[in-house]
Simulated assay, not measured.
Amino acid sequence: MTSRTARRPVLFDHDGALDDLLSLLLLTQYDTVDLRGVTVTPADCLPAPALSATRKILELTGLPHVPTAVGELAGRNPFPLVWRVDALRVDALPVLNRREPATPPVAPSTTTAAGPPAGALPAHERLAAWLLEAGEPVTVLATGPLTNLAWCLDHHPEVEARIEEVVFMGGALDVPGNVDQPGHDGSAEWNVYWDPEAAKRVFDSSLPITLFPLDVTDRVPVTTAFAHAFGRHYGKPLSDLAGSLLALTFGTLETTGLPYCCWDSLTTSYLAEPGICDFDVVHCDVVTEGAGQGRTVRDAAGRPVRSAVAVDPDRFYRHCLDVLTR
């Protein structure tokens, strides 16, 4: 493992939902993280506004040089459209539109032996190129489905040696899933359900995986107190954006019956403050067919993953406030 006295090189693969974008905001503020690139998977978002919001957040935080790419690979089970439009709302927030963006929607990059400029490559190919170009092992933070990474493993198996750790928000081990779709038994979590084969491919690799399943991430809901706490710092762009992202989650419980939780931002906080969660080794596998497709199951013969098993919610909320209001 890389020494944590150095900045950890990170590639961030997200799918453009509210908590994914809050995760990006956190990542930009971690002095322990060297953000090398960001890819957008077209899962829980409309890809164009999700990419645009991503670029604007990088502009806002002084990181316009970080390259980005948008995905084109589709999973088997699409997210509901009513969820995917959140990126449209974020892209229109005044705090992200105080001036015209200084960079194009996809950051330019010099041509390398791994391929043409970043703007010419879709996310899965761009992720592979970044990994192949990496001069040191890289952490892949995935807060959306694992489709892009699975493609990299299939088409460029040598990238496996370039990855130090996969930090993944996904799965539900000992709790019900959050998928409520006709013909499904409700046991799966959406990031795995969107593309079960991709999750299975990554889990079947030898990559070190640190998993943040619903068992833990559901314990950090977006509370009124947490969202309102950012209001006391009104006038600071980062806290204004964080508070707006949290405010946009309100109404989720009333319309879906499920609370909105800090699934992705808790996962992201691990890169800066791993002590927020406790971990244990869990052997598990991914179901790819039938009424339970996308389910992550405990299996004594399955692959070992390092899974978060407990969380200190108050410490997590304090962490977010400290990082985004300082």
Rank of each mutant, 00 (worst) to 15 (best):
F203S: 05
R295Y: 00
T39S: 07
W190L: 13
P182W: 12
E72C: 05
S205C: 04
A142R: 07
D204V: 05
V40N: 06
G171S: 10
D299M: 01
L214G: 15
P157C: 03
R7N: 05
R84M: 12
P145A: 07
A48S: 14
V95Y: 00
G231C: 07
V159A: 02
V202M: 08
P108V: 03
L88I: 07
G177T: 11
A129V: 01
L127I: 00
T255P: 00
E158L: 08
C45I: 06
L253S: 12
L26H: 02
R126Y: 13
L127Q: 00
C320A: 15
A310P: 12
A53G: 09
P78F: 03
A247I: 03
S239T: 10
V90E: 08
L58I: 07
L149S: 09
A17Q: 14
N178G: 05
S52T: 15
D185R: 13
A53Q: 08
D20P: 06
A301V: 04
H283G: 00
A92Y: 02
L21A: 07
R303F: 00
A242G: 08
H233R: 13
A107E: 10
Y234D: 14
C277F: 06
C261Y: 01
L93Y: 06
G231I: 09
R84E: 08
H124F: 06
L211E: 06
V287E: 13
T224K: 12
G183N: 10
V202H: 08
A6M: 11
A300R: 14
P304F: 06
S3L: 05
D280P: 00
S23N: 02
D180N: 14
K236W: 06
W190H: 14
G71D: 01
L207K: 02
L35W: 01
R89T: 11
V106H: 00
P104A: 12
I276W: 03
R99K: 15
N191A: 10
P196W: 01
L88K: 11
P108T: 04
A114R: 02
D195E: 05
T28C: 15
G71H: 01
V297L: 11
T256N: 09
F279I: 10
Y317M: 13
A150H: 00
L271S: 05
V282Y: 01
V179S: 03
T223R: 09
T32H: 04
F250R: 15
E289L: 08
R201F: 01
E136S: 04
A242Y: 01
V70S: 15
G290S: 10
L25W: 10
R8S: 13
G243P: 14
L141P: 05
Y234Q: 15
D19A: 02
V286M: 03
G235F: 04
A129C: 03
A301F: 06
L27C: 09
D20Q: 08
T2R: 12
V40K: 03
P221A: 06
C261D: 11
I209A: 01
S244M: 08
L245T: 07
L88W: 07
S205A: 05
W130E: 03
P105M: 14
D185Q: 14
T2D: 08
Y30G: 08
C261Q: 09
M169D: 14
L46F: 03
